[in-house]
Nucleic acid binder design. Sequence first.
DNA 1: AGTTTTTTGGTCAAAAATAGTCAATAAGAC
DNA 2: GTCTTATTGACTATTTTTGACCAAAAAACT
Lengths: 159, 159
Amino acid sequence: MRSLTEIIESHIIDLLGRNEEDVVSLRRKELAEQFGCVPSQINYVLRSRFTPERGYLVESQRGGHGYIKILKICYDMPEEKVRHVEDLVGDSITEQGAKRLLLSLQSRNIIDARERLLIEVALRHIDDVGESTFDVSPYKRNVLQADLLKRMLRSLVFS
Amino acid sequence: MRSLTEIIESHIIDLLGRNEEDVVSLRRKELAEQFGCVPSQINYVLRSRFTPERGYLVESQRGGHGYIKILKICYDMPEEKVRHVEDLVGDSITEQGAKRLLLSLQSRNIIDARERLLIEVALRHIDDVGESTFDVSPYKRNVLQADLLKRMLRSLVFS
DNA sequence: AGTTTTTTGGTCAAAAATAGTCAATAAGAC
DNA sequence: GTCTTATTGACTATTTTTGACCAAAAAACT
């Protein structure tokens, strides 16, 4: 038996697919009624399934005319390519290695210059924080960077 | 169904767009009559939608020939834009605050959806690492997030 | 010039409508 | 059996809408 969470997840994905746009707008209460659950179940589904790491952005507003919007930032890339990229990153990566990889992704138009810059800045930040605030060893910092790099690339690539 | 506030907001944005200038002048009472609401609804729209955070300034005057003027701020120099954005982030920012800011920056075409996604992933990563690997207090995690966010946005403004 | 009246806009708080959080359980996976 | 994931519900937070009352500027009238 599929869990309620999975059922609601597929329902939302279905709505997204049916729509021309990569966005769907919901009322939390209505959806909860439709599936006979408490409203906070919807939050659980969103938190666990529609994360940025999986390529989704969620916007919501409380109060009168409140809503929940789910956006799919959708870019198609073959699964094998994703795996390839993750293999290239590995469990640990140096700053130089990361830069080389990002340049290569940019040259293949998988990311653009601004996206590369954003990723480099984030990697640099985690390295700085690791070094100066938490006194993490260089190797462990490279592990943190690899983890972040994979997450960021996966979010862009997930389809 | 869109809220009254949104309808009035779009009307004002429409007026601004139609006008050559980056400014539009209104009578509060007339506008309220036009939309069949109480005058203070207009103040609510201004307070919640035409904020400096969203790139607007509002001036008004009471009495005979009173008016409300709405100006769109434009920054020609990159440095001004950076200062503005860094002010918006501040020294500490919550996940919710960051999401709201990023959405507003996207609506102002300062970032696009993919960039927003990348930034959210990076913010979540630093928060996760702060919490589970380094056991940092929630407040300190918000400081780390603000720092990262400022760095990422700064890099984009100059590119 | 000074005072009063009229014409504007501002503030604040209440009520209604939504959504979010958190922690306790329950169920499922290994 | 322990660990992770899912479900629930009580409590909290935010947003919109409305209206009563306040404040300022101009106009009208001494």
